[in-house]
């Protein structure tokens, strides 16, 4: 609907000028039109979320203003927590650090626990997916253990490891590993018979078959597992840090709750949400790069 109108806008002035200038003017007119189309596209993708956020903030402001004792309004949060919003990088030693450092510490824990979960999870998943015996032996154990909530693992790991930091890492590991195992196993089991036949006709050795056919064919499934796993491990770290103390975004939230600084908690939650979102996108992007269209056929 809007396109013909834009065409008329650009065409009308051009037709008025002498023919000698038309050639020189055309490309510029076309570029202007292209810029207008691009601007409209950007507006169409950027405006709706902005409007959504604006509406949410307005409603929140309205409700919070009527209940001064409850959740602070956005304007209140800005006044009370401007310090930690604007200065995420300060470091006064101990746990008195900017939000960036808390998040960074938590992310380091996630990186270690999640990497371990990815390595062990993919290995176990391939084993369970490829071998019927291993599947029968291990699957019941997996099915029961994977339903255990992350925080229920914490007392056990504390009892076994005696220290806070390794326990937090273990909780991340054990939370993230189940979706990785299960999805990898499904991927390995679902390698199309056609690809297996190609491997058989070529007489690929078991090792060559594993690396050239099985692993690439299962890659999209593996990354589905990794994506679910990284989200769950981020949930687990925030929860387990609340109980463990020290530096970390989870403990920061707990600490602010104990000193009744609800505004700071809201700001921290925003960080947690944004970082979780970024982690999810990152793994999804990695998956797309690594699987190189393996799911398309």
């Amino acid at each position: 609907m809007a396109m013909p109108a834009a065409n008329q806008d650009t065409a009308a002035p051009v037709s008025l000028v002498p023919t000698g200038d038309v050639v020189a003017l055309r490309p510029r007119a076309r570029a202007a039109e292209r810029a207008r189309v691009a601007a409209r596209q950007v507006a169409a993708t950027v405006l709706p979320p902005l409007v959504g956020i604006g509406l949410l903030l307005a409603l929140w402001e309205l409700f919070a203003a009527n209940h001064p004792a409850g959740l602070p309004a956005p304007s209140m949060i800005w006044m009370e927590s401007r310090e930690i919003i604007l200065h995420p990088f300060f470091d006064r030693g101990g746990v008195d650090k900017g939000l960036f450092w808390h998040v960074f510490t938590s992310l380091k824990r996630v990186a270690i626990g999640f990497s371990a979960a990815a390595l062990v999870g993919i290995a176990l998943g391939v084993l369970v997916g490829a071998s019927k015996v291993a599947h029968r032996a291990l699957d019941p154990i997996f099915q029961v253990l994977r339903t255990v909530p992350p925080l229920a693992w914490l007392p056990i790991s504390l009892a076994a490891l005696h220290q806070a930091n390794p326990s937090a890492l273990f909780v991340i590991f054990i939370t993230a590993i189940w979706p990785i195992i299960i999805n990898t196993a499904v991927g390995v089991r679902n390698v199309p018979q056609d690809y297996r036949n190609v491997g058989r006709v070529l007489r690929l050795s078991p090792i060559a078959f594993f690396f050239k056919i099985l692993l690439p064919a299962a890659t999209p499934y593996i990354f589905t597992g990794l994506r679910i796993g990284v989200g769950m491990s981020w949930l687990a770290i925030v929860a387990s840090e609340m109980l463990l103390g020290g530096v970390g975004i989870g403990f920061f939230i707990w600490d602010q709750y104990n000193s009744s600084r609800i505004s700071d908690i809201v700001v921290a939650l925003l960080w947690v949400g944004l970082v979780g979102y970024a982690l999810d996108r990152l793994v999804a992007l990695l998956g797309r790069i690594v699987s190189r269209g393996a799911s398309a056929g």
Partner: peptide, 9 residues
Amino acid sequence: FQNHSLLPW
């Protein structure tokens, strides 16, 4: 093979 069976990756 009937459905080509090329490895997509």
